[in-house]
Amino acid sequence: MATAISNKNRNRGPGKFGGKRGENNRIYANPLPLLFPDPPSRVASVVGLLGLSLAPIENPHCTGVFDDATRSVWICNSHDSTILWRRGMFGKGDLSRSEPSWLARQTNLRNLQGTKLTSEEVTARRRAERKQFKMDRAKAIANAFAEAEAAFEQGVVIKPTLSGPNIPSAATWRPSPSTPQSEAVNEVPLEDRHESDEEDLPPLEDIEHLQLTLQEAFFLLWNLDCLTVLDPTTDRAMTLKEIWTTFQLSHLPREIPSQDLPIQPDNPFLVNYVVYHHYRSLGWVVKGGIKFCVDYLLYKKGPVFNHAELAVVVIPVYEDEEDEQNSVFSEQRNKAKPFSWTWLNTINRVNSQTLILTYVTIPSHKRVAELGDSPCVFKEYSVREVTIRRFIPARMRD
């Protein structure tokens, strides 16, 4: 029986999405920008006995520019953007949903072929088809009621049927040949195109850049040493000390002077980076979760493969209550202090994923001052997690 089943599965083929999944596994095979090529087998076998490795490290050394207005680092080189996205899915395109695909969308629009649609184009087509399905179904239901009204006027009482071949359903409905106006522009017959029209068009220029959050940028430059951040005014490479200070100052309220201000342990950059580093070190792909009213979304392999598995809300907890009262961020935290049962149920309802409340213990000013103003203060932070699962009766009957 097991042999018959295995033969049946072997002859089934890759499936509907098998080819695309295999291509994604090949493109996004590396979880980090750093590559570790395998050394020659004979050398590896001899050196491996000593517990050593001769595998060289390939470091891409990407370059970005700090932008204070958006609190992010811009990767304007398309080659560097491709590396950072395909090796760990860092950042997002400023003109795209996630992967920088603006140039591909414009190329598809110019070629009028659409052989390989981007994620944005697939979503737009799916929404247009869903809209057309709702319109067709509403029209069919209205016709059924009109027939019932006409029969009633003739003295015959019938009950309008809201199902059957005349009423389309989501399982059997197919798009009609007449496409919506939003897609009709992209489906010009190839025989009606003229080469002169294409020659008159200017060449496409990629104006999109990859936008890294400050947490992603600091993780790449501090842990992996594969990112160089340039100063936007002088266009020179910033040192680690300058980056460490600049990223913290960008989160300070504008009315507070930053001259000679000591390190603030509850700085949002530090608190959020502790959480980002924690989950990245566990192998998760960490992305922003503002769309679902949370701080982070955790993916097993990335948004290209599947939806987020977990949603994370960062909750700071002060070790010293006096630090919380004297904090320069107290006004911001009081405005955004939503941790009530109403808020919790709302967040849990919005997210179909498992919700994780991540409590970050902020060390006291005294302990941080003893360590100095450097990234070594991260060892004083601690992370605790509380998992909340949404109760769904249809899935949790057992």
Rank of each mutant, 00 (worst) to 15 (best):
S364W: 08
S364A: 13
Q353M: 13
Y299M: 04
V286N: 03
E324W: 15
Y279G: 01
F305H: 05
K335D: 06
Y318Q: 06
V304F: 02
G289D: 05
I356S: 06
V313C: 06
V286L: 03
S340V: 07
T342P: 01
T354G: 03
W343T: 06
Y276S: 05
Y359V: 13
V360S: 04
I356E: 05
L310R: 10
H307Y: 11
N348K: 03
Q332L: 10
S281Y: 03
K300M: 15
E321C: 09
P303M: 08
W284F: 14
Y276K: 09
Y296S: 05
S330W: 03
L282K: 09
E319M: 08
Q325E: 14
K287D: 00
S327T: 11
W284E: 03
W341C: 15
L357A: 11
V313W: 01
V286R: 00
A311I: 05
S281V: 11
A311H: 04
Y299P: 04
L298I: 09
T361H: 12
Y279D: 02
V317M: 12
V312E: 00
N334P: 00
A311P: 00
V286W: 02
F339A: 13
L310S: 00
K335S: 07
S327Q: 07
F305E: 00
G289N: 12
R349A: 15
V314L: 03
Q332S: 08
H307S: 12
E319T: 11
H307I: 11
E331N: 12
T342L: 12
F305R: 02
H277T: 15
Q332T: 12
Y299F: 10
F339G: 04
T342Y: 07
K291M: 06
P363H: 14
A308D: 07
A311W: 03
P303Q: 02
K300G: 11
K301W: 04
P363R: 08
T354H: 04
R349L: 15
G288V: 11
W341L: 15
V317G: 03
V317F: 08
G283H: 04
A308E: 10
Y296W: 10
Q325C: 10
K300S: 13
C293Y: 09
I347M: 07
T346Q: 13
S281A: 10
L298Y: 01
N345V: 07
L298D: 01
V328T: 14
K335T: 07
E324G: 14
D320F: 03
Y359Q: 09
P363L: 10
P338S: 15
L355T: 15
V328L: 14
F305C: 01
V313P: 01
A311T: 05
K335G: 05
N326K: 07
F339W: 15
I347G: 01
F329C: 09
A336R: 06
L344N: 01
N351K: 12
G302S: 02
V314R: 13
D295W: 01
V328P: 08
I356D: 04
R333S: 07
V286M: 04
W341R: 09
L355E: 02
E322Y: 13
W284T: 08
K335P: 02
A311F: 10
F339N: 09
F292W: 08
V312D: 00
H307Q: 14
I315F: 11
V304P: 01
E321T: 13
V317S: 08
P338Q: 15
G283I: 02
S364G: 14
K337S: 14
I356Y: 11
H277L: 15
L357V: 12
Y279K: 02
K291Q: 08
V350S: 07
N326Y: 08
V314H: 12
